[in-house]
Simulated scan of single mutants.
Amino acid sequence: MDTSVILPEECISHIISFTSPGDACRSAVVTPLFKSAAYSDAVWERFLPSDYQQIISSSVSSSVSSTLTSLSKKDLYFHLCHNPILINNGTLSFSLEKGSGKKCYMVGARALNVVWGDTAIYWIWPSIPESRFSEVAELNFVWWLDVRGRIDAKNLSPNTTYAAYLVYKFSKPNHGFETRPVELSVQLEGSGAAERRRVFLDPPENMPQLYRARGDGWMEIAMGEFFNEHGDDGTVLSSLFDFHQFTTRRGLIVEGIEFRPKMVNR
């Protein structure tokens, strides 16, 4: 029996809104009526985060905010999947995970706690065209590497396992990262001991390559993961750390630390 003969478009839209973005797109090929129902604002409003309007209104660009609010809800959804917007005075970026509509954030370098970051002989803050942020952190010379990021769990999607990723690259010349690992950690505040891992950011060819090229000119490496159960569980803390009084490092460029749902291919 053809349900489109029995059910009005509004009912079909309501049913589709309880599925997923992928299911909505697939249902659009069934009939013209299903296409109209599946692409309706009523469906895609359900796939967007409940606070999406507040997030968009906090964009650092009023023209971007105005453009986004004029889009259909479906176009807005996919725009946010592919085009992160800058918020929080340009130190934080927001986007959506395409398959689920869950929130992704990158904490830009200027919002990270970089030890000795205000001392030019150790760190500089250039602007480079491949970064979404106005400044990145570039390492000149240190023995003690300590970079920390934090984000409130309430900003992330609840009931979701997230992973944190260090987003970085190297200038030339660089030194120290191929001979000694760094320590990466992630911890949901109050959840017990932090998950820690020792990895090479620039491993020799005979070692496993744990980093991944992102396709946007940067590399990323997983720092750890956590389960954001209720979305009101305090603060997520992440860190990049190493100290060795006889080993210096230089040439690391940090764009930020990204928090996104685990096992997402980009």
Rank of each mutant, 00 (worst) to 15 (best):
I257T: 00
S70N: 15
K169S: 13
S58Q: 09
G192N: 08
K73M: 11
L240D: 00
V264A: 09
A194G: 06
D41W: 05
A28D: 03
G190T: 05
W116S: 09
E195L: 11
E135G: 04
N265K: 13
P49C: 09
R148D: 02
E135V: 09
G190H: 05
L7M: 11
Y162F: 09
S134A: 15
E189R: 09
V142E: 02
K102E: 11
R196V: 11
R148Q: 14
E45F: 07
T31C: 10
N228G: 09
A42E: 14
L201D: 01
S95R: 06
L240K: 01
P21K: 05
S63H: 14
K172Q: 14
N265Y: 10
R132Q: 12
V167M: 05
E9T: 14
L33M: 14
D41H: 07
S131Q: 05
D146H: 08
S57L: 15
R249V: 05
I85H: 02
E10S: 10
Q187R: 15
L80C: 04
A42G: 01
A137G: 08
S131H: 03
D23C: 10
S100H: 06
R148M: 06
R214P: 02
H82V: 04
P32Y: 11
R196N: 08
T91I: 05
K169T: 15
L112F: 01
L33P: 00
S57Y: 12
S93L: 05
S157M: 07
V186T: 08
L210K: 12
R198P: 00
M106L: 06
F241T: 04
P204Y: 03
V29K: 07
R110D: 06
T161C: 12
E195N: 09
E258D: 05
T160V: 09
S58R: 04
R212V: 13
A137M: 08
F94D: 00
I85R: 02
G101N: 04
S36Q: 14
